[in-house]
């Protein structure tokens, strides 16, 4: 059951990454897709400079609008993210994000998982909210050049997804770009290598500590329509779900924690079938069995 569920998730992740990066001419001719689809944001952290990208990166788009001299904040992009967050929360991270997929694949490498919990984990998880506010929303709007345009701070200084999906293929295929490489590329490659190396011993460190997109979806998680319900009558608090959770969520206590990426591992390992993902909340009766539902 667990293997079957994990395999299905992997197939969905691969299919979605291939579909949203399916502009084959981009990989062959190295010219970006310039069609109207690119005004729409993809749900996951998918660099729009990836040769095959058919849509926009939502975090790049947030910074592009904030950095534009005509605007300070993107209601369009944030609205789309809030809508998606309200519908499915961090299910996007678990199933639809290409960089989440990369980290999942890294974690499958059979090396001893010596760093399952990073020291200071509890506090480091707040870092993604600081990055969201500072590097995605404030700095691109406030720190501008002489024509009033701001840099995409997160994309420029941190985003390993941009380096992997956009930077590496573009630089490998364009000699003119190779001649322009400098400190920034080395810095970003360093971050990418560090994140990938960490991902082999710790489950999804980028999603836990650094991802501003995960921060937005995470804030929607506790109220999203797609949610996890714990049947308290069936739950024996054996702890199997929490032990299986790579994101470190205490499932019976906080089933809809901002950290949950809805991967479903908890539900598949539950020996009592006490965990269920649902779109519609079960009605809680005043006196009866259904009162024992935690969500």
């Amino acid at each position: 059951m667990k293997k079957m569920r994990e395999r299905t998730r992997l197939i969905i992740q691969l299919a979605f990454a291939a579909l949203t990066n399916g502009y084959v001419s981009g990989f062959l001719g190295q010219k970006l897709y310039k069609g109207k689809l690119k005004q729409f944001c993809l749900p996951g952290l998918n660099c729009y400079s990836c040769p095959g990208a058919l849509g926009s990166c939502p975090i790049g788009a947030l910074q592009a609008v904030a950095g534009d001299r005509s605007f300070s904040f993107s209601f369009y992009v944030m609205g789309c993210l809030v809508m998606l967050g309200a519908l499915i929360g961090r299910l996007v991270c678990g199933f639809l994000c290409p960089f989440g997929l990369v980290q999942d694949l890294m974690y499958k490498i059979p090396v001893p998982k010596v760093l399952r919990k990073i020291p200071g984990d509890r506090y480091l998880r707040f870092l993604k909210y600081i990055i969201l506010v500072l590097m995605v929303l404030v700095l691109p709007d406030r720190v501008t050049n002489i024509i009033g345009q701001g840099d995409p701070w997160f994309c420029k200084w941190i985003c390993p997804s941009g380096t992997l999906l956009g930077g590496v293929p573009q630089v490998l295929s364009t000699p003119a770009l190779q001649a322009s490489l400098g400190f920034l590329f080395s810095w970003k490659m360093g971050i990418l290598i560090l994140v990938l190396a960490l991902s082999s011993v710790n489950y999804r460190p980028f999603c836990k500590y650094l991802c501003p997109l995960g921060a937005i979806y995470g804030l929607c998680n506790p109220v999203s329509l797609y949610h996890l319900e714990v049947d308290k009558e069936k739950c024996t608090r054996c702890g199997a779900c929490s032990r299986a959770c790579g994101m470190g969520v205490d499932v019976p206590k906080a089933p809809n924690s901002p950290e949950c990426i809805r991967c479903g591992k908890c539900a598949s390992v539950c020996p009592h079938d006490a965990l269920q993902f649902r779109f519609v909340h079960r009605k809680k009766e005043k006196h009866g069995q259904a009162e024992n539902i935690e969500n």
Partner: peptide
Amino acid sequence: TVLKKAITLCLECIGI
């Protein structure tokens, strides 16, 4: 604005 940014190569994103 999103479209204009997305159809040109983002040099910051790729680390140039």
